[in-house]
């Protein structure tokens, strides 16, 4: 994983991390084609990117840029057409845009299932599930079923369930896309806190520039049809960040300008 052609810009190490951080995910020359023959669609074209251990990486792009495809490839749910993805044996958990909770299970039982499927005993799983729900401030709602919770709360249960997988990499596919703005802002704060407490490597897919700037250590902007990495931005802002801060707004403006150029290219 050392001889990859990286296209990442030089970045400053996170202030908390020691120098130079290990690479957690090495994506090298990855292409993905859906279908075959004349109906084949090239979703990703020769994408290379390195993501450091403990890093918060945002994949940003308009529709059709293959950002979710890349996430599913890293998760191992899809197979690459060309190229390699190396996570050096690290395991990954995946969160969807929908909470994807099982409606017949309580909040606690949804989290427990992730543990018992990995061989935990019932009793230990119960205890650990309650700990994880407390981490996302939902310990008071352990016995509620998904339909009794709000959208934001369901997504937090999904986060607790993802944490229960005890993975090193957390892959998030527009997890807050369906939430109202106020809930989303609070969940950004929540996620940032969980991430800095756990030291997870996070790959976060979004089409919301401000969200990417609010959360990411780095932002990979992807082009559309086919998806390629157009540019990688560093976000050298201190944490905890505020989404309404001047610094976040400034960087958002710069990245948005680049993204609009990319979108306009398809209108000509």
């Amino acid at each position: 994983m050392s001889d990859t052609t990286t296209i990442m810009a030089p970045r400053e190490a996170r202030p908390t991390a020691a120098s130079p951080p290990e690479t957690a995910i090495t994506v090298t020359g990855v292409s993905k084609t859906y279908g075959d023959g004349r109906s084949a669609v090239l979703a990703l074209d020769d994408v290379s990117v390195d993501i450091a251990a403990g890093e918060f990486m945002c994949l940003l792009g308009a529709s059709g840029c293959g950002k979710s495809t890349l996430l599913n490839l890293i998760a191992g749910l899809y197979h690459v057409t060309d190229g390699t993805i190396d996570t050096a044996g690290r395991r990954s958990a995946l969160m969807f845009q929908e909470p994807a909770l099982f409606p017949w299970l309580t909040a606690a039982a949804n989290v427990e299932l992730a543990l018992t499927l990995r061989g935990w005993s019932r009793r230990n799983a119960r205890e650990r599930a309650l700990d994880l729900l407390a981490r996302v401030r939902l310990d008071g709602f352990a016995s509620k079923r998904p339909h009794e919770l709000s959208g934001g709360m369901r997504q937090r249960v999904a986060l607790a369930r993802a944490l229960a997988q005890d993975a090193d990499i957390l892959l998030m596919d527009e997890p807050f896309g369906a939430l109202d703005a106020m809930t989303r802002d609070l969940l950004h704060d929540e996620l940032e806190r969980v991430w800095s407490d756990t030291g997870l490597t996070v790959v976060f897919v979004t089409h919301n520039v401000r969200e990417a700037v609010r959360l990411g250590d780095r932002i990979a902007v992807l082009t559309s049809r086919p998806g390629r990495v157009a540019r990688i931005y560093d976000v050298p802002l201190e944490r905890p960040r505020r989404i309404e801060s001047v610094e976040v707004t400034e960087i958002t403006a710069a990245v948005t300008a680049r993204l609009r150029e990319e979108v306009a290219r398809h209108g000509r």
């Binding site: 401030r137 009794e148 919770l149 959208g151 709360m153 809930t183 609070l186 806190r193």
Partner: peptide, 16 residues
């Protein structure tokens, strides 16, 4: 943050 989240939860939880 805790207070804000708890407040939002209280407002959003559907009443039955």
């Amino acid at each position: 943050l805790d207070t804000e989240i708890a407040g939002l939860d209280a407002l959003e939880i559907p009443r039955s």
